[in-house]
Nucleic acid binder design. Structure first.
Lengths: 217, 217
DNA sequence: ACGTGTGAACCGATTCACAGCA
DNA sequence: TGCTGTGAATCGGTTCACACGT
């Protein structure tokens, strides 16, 4: 989607590598539930559509985690990936826009296993303010900067209609948000460097499906 | 995310190109609403994080749509992109899993402008079956194959818990579904060739945000 | 023997830079 | 002059293929 580039002072890995690491972690956790203890790069990448060389190379950027001739110990690799990805403490998220999508995300059960939790939700609809959704109280937009600052929240989620997304993003960054997951179908432009924005645009994804439908053999 | 590769008999463009075309289309429509009539590659790519050369090259794969020395006529380019992407008729979508996320998608207002519409929804929860959500009646899973076949539906959306996603995907493909947008956080493996699966995994996206948060300067 | 880890080769995608046209 | 369209150059990411360790 949009060019996403953020570099640390030291080594700089492309977001693609990191996304694949998250995928590996996700599937390793599934394997762990199935009580698989050791897995080879060949086996794990059969499920994903990724080559085994890619898997090994991705890991090699960060260290040596396998045993030659054997494979990878699932629980060990999970721990190592969690270290790499920064899953060593809880990460709080502030969500703006408690419409249908925002409410769905507030109740999404996939976050806790990655130590992610939405701890604050904001909307400008008087009818929603004060209500609790999935245990999170909806507050007014005016309260947002204070809540974000007080809680030291660094991750924001934008679920507002497109015309409001840009200004919400700016206000979030002003309050201290360092990275944003944007569900609004617009491009957000931020002046500040070092803010990472990821976009989830379902209509664009579907559009791509339609293109390939038309072109299929 | 996963390696997504589908080729037509003739020219084969990477999904990345197609996703960018959808992005261009989305932003062009926004420009049209703001009554912008002509735009240069420089101007439109300032909003997105894409180089103007990239924009011009992407379009050049499909034809010549601009005027040298002038730029691109917004309404003309919109029409051309709609042709390229296949937005010449309505595309029906079958959704499985009417939980929070499924319900949110049923009410999502961003689809119609791309001639996408969810026309069928399925769940195995007796309490949901028979109810209408955003005007779509929820049917039982048993009815799915028949409804998909009868309606000639080719696009599926999976919003079920991860452990059910694989089998739902297989049943969808068996019923005639040709491409799938998967929201369940698992890898889906399909034997059939020529089926395009796109994955939306919010936890993975957030994971990537967290990684860059940790690494920031 | 087996599967990892990795430099080297490869390939595709992005960017450059300028010719071509309004 | 200004901006498009596009071959050529570049860059980065993926794959290959094999040395290495168990």
């Amino acid at each position: 989607m949009q060019k996403e580039k953020v570099c640390s002072k030291k080594k700089c890995f492309s977001p693609e590598v990191i996304k694949r690491l998250s995928l590996y972690l996700r599937d390793l956790k599934n394997l762990q539930e199935q009580e698989v203890e050791v897995i080879s790069s060949d086996e794990i990448t059969k499920m994903l559509d990724i080559s085994s060389a890619q898997f090994r190379k991705d890991l090699s950027y960060f260290g040596e985690f396998g045993k030659r001739g054997v494979g990878y110990e699932v629980s060990f690799l999970i721990r190592e990936l969690e270290k790499i990805l920064g899953i060593y403490r809880w990460w709080d998220i502030a969500l703006v826009g408690v419409g249908r999508l925002g409410s769905a995300l507030l109740g999404f059960s996939g976050f806790p296993q990655f130590k992610l939790r939405i701890t604050a939700a904001f909307d400008n609809d008087r009818k929603k303010i004060g209500k609790a959704i999935s245990g999170v109280e909806v507050k007014s937009l005016e309260e947002m900067p204070a809540v974000i600052k007080k809680g030291g929240i660094e991750i924001g989620m934008i679920c507002v209609p497109p015309q409001f997304a840009q200004s919400i993003a700016e206000r979030m960054v002003g309050a201290g948000i360092k990275s944003i997951l944007n569900f609004a179908p617009v491009s957000i432009k931020l002046p500040a460097e070092g803010i990472y924005i990821a976009n989830v645009d379902m209509a664009c994804e579907l559009q791509t499906l339609v293109y390939f439908l038309n072109r299929r053999h």
